[in-house]
């Protein structure tokens, strides 16, 4: 396998695998937030704000994978 093909596959794996964990985490967090809102509808604003912030934190883990993928595709140090 030449280095270009390997890099493309590695990029796909990087973003794909990096999406698994944050996906599970975001699902958990959102589910808990919905449960929290259902229990205490008056706290919705606060819960939503915190949820968005934490979702963005989890999202950034996938984004790290994306950065690696982009480096492999556009600024490959080996090709």
């Amino acid at each position: 396998m030449d280095i270009n093909a390997a890099s493309v596959i590695a990029a796909a794996l990087a973003i794909g695998l990096a999406a698994i964990g944050p996906g599970i985490g975001q699902g958990n967090a959102s589910g808990q937030a919905v449960a929290g809102i259902a229990r205490q509808p008056e706290a919705e604003g606060k819960i939503r704000g915190t949820l968005l912030l934490t979702l963005a934190f989890m999202e950034s883990l996938t984004i790290y994978g994306l950065v690696v993928a982009l480096v492999l595709l556009f600024a490959n140090p080996f090709a």
């Binding site: 999202e59 950034s60 984004i63 790290y64 994306l66 950065v67 982009l70």
Partner: peptide, 16 residues
């Protein structure tokens, strides 16, 4: 590292 990659990655991802 994480601060810079997070911001950079998000903006580039949006644009892409």
């Amino acid at each position: 590292l994480s601060l810079s990659f997070r911001l950079f990655g998000n903006i580039v991802a949006d644009e892409l």
